[in-house]
Design a binder for these strands. Structure first.
Lengths: 236, 236
DNA sequence: TCTATTTCTCAGCCTTCTCTCAGTTTTTTA
DNA sequence: TAAAAAACTGAGAGAAGGCTGAGAAATAGA
């Protein structure tokens, strides 16, 4: 289960405390050991003895830019994968160009579900095997989601899902058989600055049903007043 | 049995003393060690040496908001799960992000039974194993309630229960073999501001009997003039 | 720039649930 | 044995929760 230290260390670097807290909390919950830093120099100091396996690094820091921080940390001989965070301005191209090796980047705002998935993929790529998550496929009954190819199959058929539908499917799959509330879904699957109400989850569940549950048996079940749950009806 | 100190410490923070008292009493009764605070700064002061495992925290406090209190407590290095309480008014905006990292939230008014269940689920999720309640299933005879899936089975058959029926069943199960009065049931299963009379409990017991006790032997027994009791008849 | 896709909101509809009430049955007491 | 008290249950009004189609707004792609 979650909560145990499994040895994967992540350093989160962002000057907005709200953001770094949010990220840190999420990553801790899924079992990582996490430290946070608000500036480049602070990040450097912490990295030195924390020796993180991966860094979540905002490219825009008060003292220096993220690439510089990244370079310095690697110069220390610390072998680390980096997930860059960038605002959605024009900088994306530049970031993409500078993202080399096993590194990756995401634009703010993002969903926590997506962040965790990227971190896991990153660790896999750089060869740090995470316990229990070394498989790139998540399965439930005849529904299968492939992390590497971003494909989802039901009963052997390839489904055509939009990005949000994909993320929602993954979240349901990860929590298969347990009830998840609409607010949980909203908090994990939607971008963290989303200000709408949980009604949108109903809409997307409706979309998903038309793609996933046109096959028998239906897997997405409503638990009135509580949330949704992936289950195989035959279980009784 | 309930009543013993099992080591789980809960801090309840709400400026309405009626509410925090109500919650504290309920939590103490089921075996938690409880402290209360009416303001954010008071909460912080108490948390420092009380080191709670979980906090029940109103988001609307006189001095500062609940999120700030939460952040400060965690900055003290206290690893704590939070159950946020929110009013059901226009505040729904601020409710975003509350279910991150094992945390949860409930809207006022709520039922005490629901609150206790959420606290237990929270402690389980963040890895604080509660004695005697480390399982997500509650059982009595061939009646079984699953907290994670929200399913109830009798003699292997899945029962279809409404939310209130589910909560009532849980309350009876937790108090199995003991007589619980109609007013006790009303106080625990219905929202704390419910202004109807205890007659509704009879109605719901009737509903439950038609779902649970169509199987033999009947488990729900009336103790005339006192209340109801879950028992296996052969026991006498 | 235009087009296609995706996201999001909203309103109408339908289903289920909650709660009250009143008539009935059961048990107790006088 | 009759009257009173307590509990049971069916019916129904109104509320709440959830589903979905339509369309506006935002975004990405050609």
């Amino acid at each position: 289960m979650s909560g145990e230290k499994n040895g994967q260390r992540i350093l989160v670097v962002d000057d907005e405390v709200n953001i770094s807290d949010l990220i840190a909390t999420s990553l801790r919950f899924v079992g990582f050991e996490v430290r946070t830093a608000a500036t480049g120099s602070q990040a450097l100091a912490i990295a030195e003895d924390f020796k993180p396996h991966a860094i979540v690094l905002d490219v825009m820091l008060p003292d220096q830019d993220g690439f510089e921080v990244c370079r310095q940390i690697r110069n220390e001989g610390i072998d680390v994968g980096v997930l860059f965070l960038t605002a959605k301005d024009g900088m994306e191209d530049k970031v993409a160009g500078l993202t080399i090796g096993g590194d990756d980047y995401m634009t703010k705002p993002f969903s926590l579900e997506e962040l965790v998935a990227r971190i896991r993929a990153l660790l896999r790529r750089i060869g740090v095997v995470e316990i229990e998550h070394d498989d790139e496929k998540i399965r439930f009954a005849d529904l299968e989601l492939n992390e590497a190819t971003h494909e989802v199959h039901r009963a052997g058929h390839l489904l055509d899902l939009s990005p949000t539908e994909f993320t929602l499917t993954r979240y349901l799959l990860i929590n298969s058989d347990r009830v998840v509330s609409k607010s949980q879904i909203l908090d994990h699957v939607w971008e963290y600055d989303f200000r709408g109400d949980a009604g949108i989850v109903e809409t997307y569940i409706s979309y998903l049903r038309k793609k996933i549950d046109i096959f028998d048996p239906p897997l997405i079940h409503t638990v009135r007043g509580v949330g949704y749950r992936l289950k195989v009806p035959s279980e009784q």
